[in-house]
């Protein structure tokens, strides 16, 4: 039964965003298991603890207290254990600098948080249904930022 679920994790310090995120997956007709964490420290503690089921896709906010999204990304890329997780950057801003930096550090996709709920649902559906292996092979700096 486990294998039929897509495991999804969101690390975001913003309560509202976590709510939108969970609501969006609730309304989508995809069988997913969504876990959310309040910041990078909670996230990494969870990922590093034994017996944890690693997520298929990890959504990572950049601006978080205690441990930022960038720090989490850095730690995960150092550890071979996490190499199969697709990492989606999930941020309010889409500044050139952030996009460039996260691409170089090995994130798989960059999502600018949408302004309305319908778009949010569309974006999340698209991202969780991506064939990551195929997508990652053709990844470059231009298609790194998700455009809808």
């Amino acid at each position: 039964m486990h294998e039929d679920y897509i495991n999804i994790i969101l690390a975001d310090d913003d309560e509202d965003d976590r709510l939108f995120f969970s609501d969006a997956f609730d309304e989508l007709k995809i069988t997913t298991r969504v876990k959310t964490f309040n910041d990078g420290v909670y996230l990494m503690d969870y990922l590093n603890s034994e017996g944890t089921v690693l997520p298929n896709v990890l959504f990572l906010d950049l601006n978080m207290p205690r441990k930022s999204g960038l720090e989490c990304l850095q730690e995960m890329k150092k550890n071979d254990k996490f190499k199969d997780i697709a990492i989606a950057i999930y941020s309010t801003s889409a500044s050139e600098e952030d996009i460039e930096k996260t691409f170089v550090m090995g994130a798989n996709i960059y999502i600018k948080k949408p302004n309305d709920f319908k778009t949010l649902k569309k974006v999340l559906e698209e991202v969780v249904t991506i064939n990551w292996q195929y997508y990652t092979n053709g990844l470059n700096k231009d298609n790194f930022l998700l455009r809808l």
Binding site: D16, D23, N63, T92, S95, K113, P114, N115, D116, F117
Partner: peptide, 24 residues
């Protein structure tokens, strides 16, 4: 710039998202 791009946009985005939820 950073404040304008991040901190100012965030509450606005939420207003818009909540509005879309409210409309729906």
């Amino acid at each position: 710039n950073y404040v304008a791009s991040h901190d100012l946009q965030e509450p606005l985005r939420k207003i818009q998202t909540f509005l879309s939820r409210f409309e729906d």
